[in-house]
């Protein structure tokens, strides 16, 4: 019972965030509506690049790591590296797909 109370309190404290999430879900659904089949793959690839925004979290965690916490710094280094791959690779490969699209 106490656990449920805690959980409800957690939801209540983050009410604004939850509104934010629900509205974002609807925006996402709205944005995809009525997309032609040929654009499915580039759109997936474009969305793939956008979730690379996770790199912001990786940079943030690095900035808040002490300069002598080597384990966290090493993990953080790889997090930023992999995040960059996701962002740069994602956008460049999407651009290549759409470039081909135009020529047709």
């Amino acid at each position: 019972m106490e656990q449920i109370g805690n959980f409800l309190a957690l939801l209540g404290e983050n009410e604004q965030m939850l509104y934010f999430v629900i509205l974002s879900i609807f925006v996402g659904i709205e944005v995809i509506g009525g997309v032609p089949t040929i654009l499915h793959t580039p759109l997936m690839s474009g969305a793939n690049a956008i979730h690379g925004v996770v790199i912001v979290g990786a940079i943030f965690v690095m900035l808040n790591t002490a300069a002598n916490d080597y384990l966290s710094l090493t993990l953080g280094f790889f997090a930023v590296l992999l995040g960059t791959l996701n962002v740069v690779g994602g956008f460049v490969v999407t651009d290549r797909m759409l470039e081909m699209f135009k020529k047709k």
Binding site: S24, I25, G28, I29, V31, I32, V35, H40, A47
Partner: peptide, 10 residues
């Protein structure tokens, strides 16, 4: 969230 919902629908 945008990618989460758009990706699921996609």
């Amino acid at each position: 969230i945008l990618v989460g919902s758009a990706g699921t629908l996609l």
